[in-house]
Deep mutational scan, measured.
Amino acid sequence: KKPMSASALFVQDHRPQFLIENPKTSLEDATLQIEELWKTLSEEEKLKYEEKATKDLERYNSQMKR
């Protein structure tokens, strides 16, 4: 599977709780709203997800070399 971006990892982490809190929201709308939240994060908060994305890219690259 392809590597995930930092923002995609953020959405993946936050979507389940968002949908619990907003059960009538469609998956598409939830994703859009969480992506807007991503844009408001500080660089420090984004760094955690950027590090995860880097590790996921390394995983992807090692799988492609096999």
Rank of each mutant, 00 (worst) to 15 (best):
K46R: 12
E51Q: 13
E51K: 08
E45M: 07
K48V: 13
E51N: 12
E35T: 07
A53E: 06
L27W: 07
D56I: 05
W38L: 00
R15Q: 04
A53R: 05
A8V: 03
P16I: 06
E51H: 09
Y49K: 02
A6N: 00
S62D: 10
V11A: 10
Q63T: 12
S5V: 04
F10P: 01
M64H: 15
S5G: 13
F18L: 09
D56E: 15
K1V: 07
A53Y: 07
L41P: 01
A30R: 01
F10Q: 03
Q63N: 15
M64G: 10
L57K: 09
M64L: 09
L37Y: 03
K52C: 11
E45Q: 09
L9V: 07
S5E: 13
T25A: 14
K65R: 11
R66N: 14
S42F: 00
V11I: 03
K2N: 02
N61S: 11
R15G: 02
K65E: 15
A6T: 01
L37K: 15
Y60R: 12
E45G: 06
E51C: 07
R15E: 03
Q33N: 00
P16C: 04
E35N: 03
A30H: 04
A53I: 00
S5F: 00
K52G: 07
Y49W: 13
S42A: 11
L27Y: 11
S42Q: 05
S42R: 06
E58W: 03
P16A: 12
K52M: 15
T25C: 08
T54G: 15
P3F: 15
S5H: 04
K65W: 02
N61Q: 10
E35I: 04
K55Y: 08
Q33W: 01
E45Y: 01
Y49V: 00
T25L: 10
D56Q: 08
I34T: 03
A30V: 05
K2H: 15
P3K: 04
E51G: 06
S7T: 10
L32V: 10
P16S: 07
Q33P: 02
E44K: 12
S7L: 11
Q63S: 07
L27Q: 02
T40L: 10
M4Q: 14
K55I: 13
L37V: 09
M4E: 13
L37R: 11
K2Y: 11
S7V: 15
M64F: 11
P3Q: 00
N61L: 04
W38R: 05
E44M: 03
R15K: 04
T40G: 13
E58V: 10
M4V: 11
M64V: 14
E45T: 07
S7R: 15
W38A: 04
Q33K: 12
E45R: 07
K65H: 04
D56W: 06
K65D: 15
F10T: 01
L47K: 06
T54Q: 10
K39S: 11
L37P: 00
T40R: 09
